[in-house]
Simulated assay, not measured.
Amino acid sequence: MNTPTWFKVVAVLALLWNLLGCLAFFSDLRLSPEDLAELPEAQQALYAARAGWAIAATAIAVFGGALGSIGLLLRKKWAFPVFALSLLGILVQDFGLFVLADGMRLAGPVAVVMQAIVLAIGIGLVLLSRKGIARGWLV
Rank of each mutant, 00 (worst) to 15 (best):
M1W: 09
T3C: 14
W6R: 11
F7V: 14
K8I: 13
V9K: 12
L19C: 05
C22A: 11
L23V: 12
A24M: 10
F26Q: 13
R30W: 14
E34K: 09
D35N: 15
L36A: 10
P40I: 13
P40E: 12
Q44V: 04
A48H: 00
R50M: 12
R50E: 12
G52I: 01
W53G: 07
A54H: 03
I55G: 06
A59W: 04
V62I: 04
F63P: 01
G64L: 02
G65H: 01
G65S: 00
I70A: 05
L72M: 06
L72Q: 02
R75N: 11
K76L: 12
A84W: 05
L85A: 15
S86F: 05
G89S: 03
L91C: 15
V92R: 12
Q93H: 13
L97T: 14
V99I: 15
V99H: 14
L100M: 15
R105K: 09
R105M: 08
G108D: 06
V112L: 06
Q115R: 05
Q115H: 14
I117M: 03
L119W: 01
A120Q: 00
L125V: 01
L127C: 00
L128R: 03
R130F: 05
G132H: 11
A134L: 07
R135G: 04
W137L: 11
L138G: 07
